[in-house]
Each structure stands twice: as structure tokens, then as C-alpha cells.
Amino acid sequence: MSRIELRVNGRNVEVEADGRTLLTHALRDHLRLTGTHIGCDTSQCGSCTVHVDGKAVKSCTILAVQAAGCDILTIEGLASGRELHPMQAAFNDFHGLQCGFCTPGMIMMAIDIVNRHGRPDEATVRAELEGNLCRCTGYHNIIKAVCAGAERMGEMA
């Protein structure tokens, strides 16, 4: 067991965990931040997407120790109090989910897309969401939500 220092959603935290502990398990099991989901365990589905130093990564494909000293942002870190992040609000307004399992990863990826592309067109959103699987929606409303969320984030900036 080792003591791993992480900075999660702006807070410095310590977890006591094996070296092999994946970031996603440190978040979910040690810090009880269960908004980050595990959908596949094969690095394909993107449900576990979080930001590490401002970049979207799959938290099932990085050890917690590898992220030590980095700034980690999870779905729980987006809203301010009861006010949703504009991308969360857009997913709500545009019905960008059905079962909701993939949604935390979709939203974290969507924000990463906006951070890099500003207001992306539909083709860019579709290409950039390659690493996030949704088995319910058929993606149409997710794409609409990401485009609308991008616009709202732009207005706020």
C-alpha cells in the first residue's frame, strides 16, 4: 500500500491504495466519487472519462499514482452548487441521454472538445466522440447537446 496524493475537483486528497490501483477505482472506491462510471474495462467505452491536467483521459487506463500531482476534474466538479455546468444543462435540455450510464464520460469529453475546438461543427463532434460509446440514444441528441453546450460555454466565456 502506498499513500497517493491527488488533487480532485480543486481539493487536495490522499488515498491509501495499492500501486496497481487505477485512477477510476481511486475516484470511485476510495473517494466515493461514483459519477465516473466503468462501462467496459477494456479502454473502449469512455464512460470513465475525466480530465487530467485539463485533458480528457480514460481513468481506467491510467494508474492513480501516474496522476499524482496532477489536477483531476470529474463530473462532480462541474456544477456550482445547484447550478449545472452549461454542458450538463444542454444534455438535460436536448435530451442527450436515455439510461444515463455513458453521460458523465460524454459530458467530460464534450467539455474537452469545446476547450480545443471552441464551437465545433457536427462532423467534428462526431469524430471527437469516437472514444465514447452510447448504446441507447443513437448519438443524435448527444451531438445536438454538445453543439448547444459549446455555444452556451462560448457565451459565458
Binding site: 469512455g46 472519462t49 487530467v52 485533458k55 483521459v57 480514460k58 474537452d112 469516437e130 472514444g131 465514447n132
Partner: peptide, 9 residues
């Protein structure tokens, strides 16, 4: 290569 998350690492 891969997808956006993979390309970040």
C-alpha cells in the same frame, strides 16, 4: 490514432 482520450496519453 485511437480516439481523443488515447491521443492525450
Amino acid at each position: 490514432i485511437g480516439d481523443a482520450q488515447i491521443r492525450h496519453r
